[in-house]
Design a protein around this nucleic acid. Structure first.
Length: 766
DNA sequence: TGTGTAC
């Protein structure tokens, strides 16, 4: 250990960023004949241009840490990272306390004298320092960031767990290099794999396994599904489904005939806009749990209600539900699909209703939730204390609602806007459960993870870890991030040492599983953040395969701000009588966001956009494609407005760096694709510009949710051309958002108002 | 169609 920690940790940065940068540059230099060469070069070229353009900015704020330079720079950077201290007294105390707590809790089980030793090793030799370093300073920062809007995320990048130890892993890499050249197959498959190359062929080489392991082999997959869990077999589902379907036609997707029976929605929609999906979410409640799939389809939205009723929608339709006697009937229940709204909530019906409503009223005013504490909800003192230090004094509604059920071991579906405390809502109880489950057990090196948290983007995975890690650490548990775009070595190294909670994205997780480097068989809690998104095309299968790798009876927690029918596919297979919670008003504009739509001429788009972003305050611009996002960022730079982009064509180092530039305030404008639509927290964004209107209401809600956070005001403006007006109206309607439409041309007053350069009429009167 | 997840 010490070895590992020393050479590597001390010298090279523990941050992967610098490394990436370095590799990238190396890569650029050797990009010559490689497939991705052209892209890389052009990318690099742009980067250079920008750099020179805004060199000043960069220079001051970020002394070399980012720059791909060398040691010297790194020294500077390490200086920046220097704040990382070792364990602080309080942390150490916390660790000890947790240890004793764990032991006590485990009175029945063996005491495990090793326990302490193991941990000490970990803590001192590597985990200890780093953690502490990070912990000492970051705990607070995290808290601030998350709850107080402090933009400082600089830590983010380096903070990777055991980052410092990577170096060791690196040392091992060389021997794997042989595989380096042997992975032509990928290149062939992916025309744009250039970006991967950028990140560092070293890593890839390390895996070398390119030829050895056909990870993504389609055949393997199919084999997988069926053999592993026969019970989930489609056929089975179909069977089960039918039974249920009879009861509830709407949920079944296979149950198409049923739809025919309920054509009324379609018709209404058709009359309106034909293609509109409006019906899909007449009311939020329905939308979530009963709707067939996505909004696109105008399928029968089973309810007769005209959408206007939505405003009145009781969140869970509890009233509508036939009251069931609590969970005793579990066995009697027709199927899991009931999760929708019946039983799950029912079990806690009384309790839930009470708590839910009481808190709900406080949802907007988080500070009012004073009568309940995290301890009341069942969390241990260490965790409660950590949450307090993070800025979470009292539980938010969604937390108060879900924590008890999660601790109870139930599967849970939770809907709450990211930033409203959703991460803690599942993170804190998850840590508590894991802690209890292994109370008294020795923490072994190389132990298998006990929990896994899946997110759709790397940035979100990082963010989740920033919240969960301190909580876990407060009780002696370890987390690690497993996502792509960065070298595997560090991640694998962490797994070898043993981690309790894995947080990451599907791709890399599955990859490591197939490599035999990640074993989820001990995972007893699996969380899907942005669950509805994780159930979309392209995501759902990997997710299913991953979930199937977890312990058979593992607890599943699905969260999202727009949790809807889309998760039915997973719910049917993986959840058992899930409890369903949501907090009204948290999944969309909570009244603090001002929505506007500007109807413009296409030829004016560039000027209007530049005018909108040339302002004080941070602006997040959404573009539909990566290319357009990149183009807009350049356009803004050319116009003298510092801007960076965030999209999938950038290597992870750059993605991280660019996002960090926004959060740190170095740049005021970030142009992104929908990679930034969900979950990303940048507290000071006060304007969201949708250069391209989203295609579905959920995307609108997620994008607009990047502003107006924590009760502050925010503004969202969407640019459309006149022929898109109708679609836009329909979408807003589905999103239940009121937004005035204004015709606009460059220079118009309305643009000045939206940009905040001129007070609006409302602001003047106010 | 594009976006994200991956080597």
């Amino acid at each position: 250990m010490p070895k590992n920690g020393k050479p590597k940790g001390g010298r090279p940065s523990r941050n992967f960023e610098p490394r990436y940068a370095k590799k990238a540059s190396f890569h650029d230099r050797h990009a010559g004949g490689r497939p991705g060469a052209r892209d890389e070069r052009s990318s690099a070229g742009r980067d250079d241009d920008r750099r020179s353009y805004s060199s000043d900015r960069r220079a001051d704020t970020r002394p070399g840490s980012r720059s791909p330079k060398h040691r010297g720079y790194r020294a500077v950077e390490s200086g920046a990272a220097a704040p990382k201290r070792r364990w602080s007294d309080s942390e150490r105390a916390g660790r000890d306390e947790s240890r004793s707590i764990r032991n006590r809790a485990e009175s029945g089980r063996r005491e495990a004298p090793h326990h302490r030793n193991d941990r000490d090793d970990r803590g001192r030799d590597f985990g200890g320092r780093r953690f502490e370093g990070r912990g000492g300073r970051r705990f607070e920062e995290r808290g601030e960031r998350r709850f107080d809007d402090r933009p400082r995320r600089d830590d983010r990048p380096r903070r990777d767990d055991r980052g410092g130890y990577d170096r060791n892993d690196r040392g091992e890499r060389p021997r794997f290099d042989r595989g380096g050249s042997g992975r032509p197959q990928f290149g062939g498959d992916r025309p744009r794999h250039g970006r991967d190359d950028r990140q560092g062929r070293d890593d890839r080489r390390g895996f070398g396994a390119g030829g050895e392991r056909p990870r993504f082999n389609r055949d393997d997959r199919s084999r997988f599904d069926r053999t592993e869990r026969p019970r989930f077999d489609r056929d089975d589902r179909g069977r089960g489904g039918y039974e249920r379907r009879d009861d509830r036609p709407r949920f079944d997707r296979t149950d198409r005939p049923a739809r025919d029976e309920r054509p009324r929605y379609d018709r209404e929609d058709r009359d309106r806009g034909g293609y509109t999906r409006r019906d899909d979410r007449p009311r939020r409640d329905d939308r979530d749990f009963s709707r067939p799939n996505r909004d696109d389809k105008p399928r029968h939205g089973r309810d007769d209600k005209p959408r206007h009723e939505r405003t009145e929608r009781p969140r869970y339709d509890r009233d509508e539900r036939p009251a069931r006697p609590a969970r005793e009937n579990r066995d009697d229940r027709p199927s899991r699909s009931d999760w929708n709204r019946t039983e799950s909530v029912k079990k806690h019906e009384e309790h839930v209703d009470v708590v839910h409503e009481r808190l709900e009223a406080e949802a907007v005013q988080a500070t009012e939730v004073a009568d309940v504490t995290f301890a009341d909800l069942g969390l241990g003192s260490n965790i409660a204390e950590t949450l307090r230090n993070m800025g979470a004094e009292t539980p938010f509604p969604i937390q108060a609602a879900t924590i008890p059920s999660i601790l109870e071991g139930r599967d849970v579906l939770g809907r709450g806007r990211t930033g409203s405390g959703k991460t803690i809502a599942f993170g804190a109880p998850l840590v508590e459960s894991i802690l209890k489950s292994q109370a008294g057990k020795r923490r072994e090196i190389g132990r298998k993870p006990r929990a896994i948290i899946l997110a759709p983007t790397r940035e979100l995975a990082l963010q989740i870890d920033r919240t969960v890690q301190p909580i876990a650490r407060s009780v002696g548990l370890f987390t690690t991030q497993i996502y792509g775009g960065v070298p595997q070595a560090r991640q694998v190294g962490a797994l070898k040492k043993g981690v309790d909670i894995v947080i990451g994205t599907p791709g890399r997780i599955e990859d490591l599983i197939e490599q035999g480097k990640l074993d989820l068989s001990d995972v007893r809690i699996a969380v899907l953040d942005e669950a509805d998104h994780m159930c979309e095309l392209g995501f759902v299968e990997p997710v299913q395969r991953i979930l199937r790798k977890t312990a058979d009876d593992s607890q599943k927690l699905l969260f999202s701000a727009t949790l809807d029918r889309e998760v039915a596919s997973l719910v049917d297979e993986f959840l058992d009588e899930p409890a369903v919670y949501e907090v009204a008003g948290e999944d969309q504009d909570s009244g603090t966001i001002d929505h506007r739509v500007l109807v413009i001429e296409h030829r004016d788009k560039a000027d209007v956009l530049t005018s909108l972003v040339d302002r004080d305050g941070q602006t997040l611009v959404f573009a539909r494609t990566r290319a357009y996002a990149e183009m807009l960022a350049e356009q803004f730079e050319d116009a003298g407005v510092a801007a960076v982009s965030l999209h999938g064509d950038l290597n992870q180092a750059k993605r991280t760096r660019n996002l960090q530039k926004l959060t740190s305030g170095k740049v005021q404008v970030l142009v992104a694709t929908d990679v930034a639509a969900r979950g990303i927290h940048v507290d000071d964004i006060d304007l969201v510009v949708q250069a391209d209107a989203p295609d579905e209401y959920k995307t609108y809600l997620h994008r607009s949710g990047r502003t107006g956070r924590a009760g502050r005001s925010g503004r969202v403006v969407t640019l459309i051309t006149r022929h898109r007006r109708r679609r836009m109206e329909d979408m807003l309607d589905r999103a239940e958002i009121e937004a005035p439409f204004d015709q606009a041309q460059p220079g118009d007053e309305v643009i000045e108002e939206i940009a905040g350069r001129v007070p609006t009429a409302a602001e003047l009167t106010a």
